[in-house]
Design a protein around this nucleic acid. Structure first.
Length: 323
DNA sequence: CTCCAGGGATGAT
DNA sequence: ATCATCCATGGA
């Protein structure tokens, strides 16, 4: 098994994986095991360096213990860097997935200067919004509705174990997320066995739409934010919140601002204190204007900060989040 | 606009 | 052991 190291300053791996944007990475030794697409991956942060092992054949063209410096360093956060010339190396796959090219300094500097935002910015140093595979992200967030993070993790794991492909990484067995085609061939009752409840129907119907090509997730990358949101919302189980999550976590629309109960609480308490009759639409309009071009990042920082410091639940050890 | 079903874990009684 | 709480979508 080859090893590779990537310089990854300004990146908090554990916080990123525990921030409620991705649900399948599991703590393993000093690092984490998971999948990036069909690749089984082990990642570990050592100081400023990300150490990775990857299964899937992509690694072999590079020598062992290669250290990549300045992996991809494009200009804006929105530029994908997905148009590679050569076949992507393991390092590029990982660096792209974890969005190591996002200019965090600039992004954080663009946040408004207020008390809540300042606290969140300090607390979430190194938290990045990663680039998830589109289908996996859409499917997972359909499953996320009305669920807490811990439960979403269980659902993701059940779906992978039951319908995904088995992979090996460092003697550890993990499963890729099942394709839309695979899930389209299951049944609602099979999916219910994974703990999906009424979401089973939504996931199954969406899997059919995607597998048939009627919903062409890749081609939607070319759409405007508004058009993309409309397309996503046509899938059953996808409303405003889930659509915004998928836009943010899979389509790099870093202005998308998902509003869930946590963020709603933050907005009402910090930005609409002692105001009555604040509708959801007012909150959404405010967020779109106030937090600006990197609103999605601002949202993620406020969300994670609130979840970790808020009086609700889990004052316990944060390692516990990883089962 | 309001009301509410929905599933399963977790926290409170 | 029961009871309440967390949660987003969609339909009445």
């Amino acid at each position: 098994m080859d090893l590779m190291r990537i310089e990854a300053p300004d990146f908090d791996l554990a916080m990123t994986l525990n921030s409620g944007q991705v649900f399948h990475w599991e703590k393993y030794g000093a690092g984490f095991c998971g999948t990036i697409g069909e690749h089984a991956v082990y990642v570990e942060k050592r100081g400023e360096v990300l150490q990775i092992k990857m299964e899937g054949g992509v690694l072999r063209r590079h020598g062992q213990h290669q250290i990549l410096q300045n992996v991809p360093r494009p200009t804006t956060a929105a530029t994908a860097g997905s148009r590679e010339l050569a076949p992507p190396s393991a390092a590029r796959v990982v660096a792209h997935y974890f969005a190591l090219d996002h200019p965090l300094e600039e992004i954080c500097a663009s946040f408004p200067r207020d008390q809540a935002m300042n606290a969140a910015r300090d607390f979430c140093r190194g938290l990045r919004i990663i680039r998830q595979p589109k289908w996996e992200c859409l499917a997972t967030f359909i499953c996320s509705s009305m669920k807490q993070v811990k439960h979403i993790r269980q659902i993701s794991r059940a779906l992978r174990q039951r319908f995904g492909e088995k992979k090996q990484i460092g003697g550890n067995e993990i499963f890729s997320f099942p394709s839309s085609g695979r899930l389209a061939r299951t049944s609602e009752s099979e999916l219910r066995k994974c703990g999906l409840g009424y979401r089973a129907r939504n996931l199954l119907e969406t899997a059919k739409l995607v597998a048939s090509g009627e919903a062409d997730l890749d081609s939607w990358s070319a759409l405007s934010d508004r058009q993309l949101r409309e397309q996503l919302s046509e899938s059953p189980g996808v409303g405003m919140k889930v659509a915004n999550c998928v836009m943010l976590f899979a389509y790099e629309r870093i202005a998308a601002f998902p509003i869930d109960v946590w963020i709603e609480r933050v907005l009402r308490e910090k930005y609409f204190a002692r105001r009555r009759k604040v509708t959801g639409q007012m909150l959404a309009d405010f967020a779109a204007n106030y937090f600006g071009a990197h609103g999605g990042y601002a949202q993620q920082y406020l969300f994670h900060h609130a979840r970790m410091t808020g009086k609700r639940k889990s004052q316990s050890h944060s390692i516990d989040q990883f089962h």
